[in-house]
Simulated assay, not measured.
Amino acid sequence: MERTLCDILRKHNKTDLQIITDAFKSYVRRKDKNISMLREYGKKLKVEGKLQTYLEVLL
């Protein structure tokens, strides 16, 4: 799940903004979310800034 969200952010130019927003909203509502793993993938895939922006708004 976490990896997929980061992959979506990597290809944000090719992905509709509404899809990205809906994916993050769904993720934040889940009980089994792992924010620390999401941040780790964000670092590795170099999308930390974009990821931080979405998390600040939704959390």
Rank of each mutant, 00 (worst) to 15 (best):
L59D: 13
E2K: 02
F24M: 00
G49M: 01
L5A: 12
L9Y: 05
L38M: 05
V47M: 00
L38F: 11
N34L: 04
N34T: 03
E48I: 00
Y41E: 11
T15P: 05
G42E: 00
L59V: 04
D32A: 08
G42V: 00
V28R: 02
I35V: 13
L58N: 05
A23G: 10
K43D: 11
Q52A: 06
K25F: 08
I35A: 09
L45S: 08
E2F: 02
E2D: 15
E2Y: 09
L5T: 04
T4H: 15
T53Y: 10
N13C: 10
L58K: 02
V28K: 05
G49V: 03
Q18S: 13
V47Q: 00
T21E: 15
T4C: 14
R39L: 06
L38H: 05
S26L: 14
L17A: 11
R3Y: 15
Y54L: 00
D22A: 07
L55M: 15
D16S: 11
D32L: 06
L55T: 02
Y27C: 04
L38C: 08
T53W: 07
Q18N: 10
T15G: 04
R30V: 05
I20F: 02
Q18M: 02
K46M: 05
G42Q: 04
M1H: 11
T4Q: 14
S26E: 15
K25N: 14
C6K: 01
E2R: 03
Y27W: 14
H12Q: 15
V57I: 14
R30P: 07
Y41A: 05
R30S: 15
H12V: 06
K11I: 09
L5D: 10
R29K: 15
K50R: 06
D22Y: 09
K31H: 12
E48N: 02
Y27D: 10
Q18Y: 06
Y41P: 02
N34V: 04
L5K: 01
G49H: 07
Q18W: 04
H12Y: 13
E40I: 07
L5M: 07
Y41K: 01
L17G: 10
L58C: 07
D7V: 13
L17Y: 12
Y54I: 00
K50A: 12
V47C: 03
D32V: 01
D16A: 10
